[in-house]
Nucleic acid binder design. Structure first.
Lengths: 238, 238
DNA sequence: CGATAGTTTGATATCCTTCAAAACCTGTGG
DNA sequence: CCACAGGTTTTGAAGGATATCAAACTATCG
């Protein structure tokens, strides 16, 4: 039974048994944390590297005018900036959305693993590039796509990412966001989120309730979103 | 006379004479290219690492519906993804906007320098983090800021970045964009760009003509943009 | 079982887009 | 040096997507 970290990185680069073992050892000792835990404070100096093993977290920033922007989500297997400790301060916060399990890894420990295991280093570099590609897609969404398309794009992204780490059951997966969160990630008011969601439900494209998302019509969703899955750079192997 | 690369990285990390020399050597042999040269094609496998020494370039993507999104700008001293060669294909293109001067660096050569010079490695990692922070700010702009604020934020960003590499003359600097480019970077129609610019000109905040930008009232601009310059992580040194 | 967070509805306002066309540059060839 | 072509900027009018404001309704959790 692989950890989500191994699953994720293995989706990028072929890992040996040794690589996988080394990665598993990075996942201990883990710590269980309640929902809404702030993992990282804006302005704080990042010390350790956080690795998320269970639950969802989000990067978020409160703007001077009081509005909130969510800048990305972390799901199991995701790491909160492998190089963050280089900078003197975080320019955004990171919050757990649901109960979660987390490991803290010291930069030295991480460095040792990267030096020992070239494939692991490669996989992490790959993963960083994908994070950036995701951010670019979010920018495109915010700047060029309609509310429906944005939302569709986001749902598909999270579906594929959850699938990569083995956390989907067909079209279904845990999705611990409120409509307010959705608004803050897509740059829409919760009111408009609600109306857009209703349309999608009415057309039988997705259903989303009680913190679970079900993708009912992936093709229609991809069409709405103009979705080009290549940006996630997930390798289909075997 | 330092190259823009040394200037930029020196704004992040204190570099030794040896570090600087090594970086200067990366800047040769350079190649002069005409405006509108495509430096990198979408879908292409990235081979060498591009370093821009003169002129501006932009990352751009054409969406399935035909609209164009500019995803970022490269100015002298900027590098086009130090790790891009890891992926099999670019998910966006890179175009020169003006005449430019460019160096191509092989991944092996770059690797050698990074291994030899820890401070240089650190500076490049820092630089990558700043690129990501810039992208996050673009996302915030597109998703939460008004047309005026977006534009103001962008102008300030480019001003500070140009200043970091010594290419400003007070509030003035080269700015080789058309209003159409501005629209494609800010997610606005050129018509609205034009009207927003007129307001700013009328209020005496900026003036922009003949490929030169002049920041007339930086304080007002920062206020409009809700600008927090820390995200650029430029160190003010003695 | 009550309090609080989250969802839904309705009415109105606004920012930005779209469409259409004129005016203005900038550079190129005759 | 002028004329012309293409790209760029500017203007006007009208429409649409999303925001704002206000309030009811409904889950969820201690």
């Amino acid at each position: 039974m692989d950890s989500p970290l191994v699953r994720k990185l293995n989706g990028f680069v072929e890992l040996s048994r040794r690589d996988a073992l080394e990665l598993e050892s990075l996942c201990r000792p883990s710590q269980r944390l309640p929902a809404r835990t702030r993992l990282m404070e804006e302005g704080e100096r990042p010390q350790d590297i956080f690795l998320l093993l269970e639950g969802w977290a989000c990067r978020l920033k409160i703007l001077p005018n009081g509005s909130r922007q969510i800048l990305g989500y972390l799901i199991p297997g995701d790491i909160c900036d492998i190089h963050a400790y280089i900078l003197e301060q975080m320019d955004h916060a990171i919050d757990l959305l649901s109960v979660g399990r987390v490991v803290r890894i010291s930069p030295e420990r991480m460095q040792a693993v990267l030096n020992d295991r070239p494939a692991v280093r490669r996989a992490f570099e790959w993963s960083t590039l994908v994070d950036i590609a995701v951010l670019r897609q979010w920018l495109i969404s915010a700047s060029r796509r309609s509310a429906q398309a944005r939302m569709a794009h986001f749902f598909l992204e999270m579906w594929l990412r959850m699938r990569q780490v083995g956390l989907t059951d067909d079209g279904q997966f845990a999705f611990p966001l409120t409509q307010v969160h959705l608004g803050d990630t897509l740059g829409l008011t919760p009111i408009h989120v609600n109306r857009t969601l209703q349309q999608m439900r009415a057309e039988g494209i997705v259903s989303f309730a009680r913190k679970r998302m079900t993708i009912l019509n992936p093709d229609r969703l991809a069409e709405l979103a103009q979705f080009e899955p290549d940006y996630l750079h997930i390798q289909r192997r075997g």
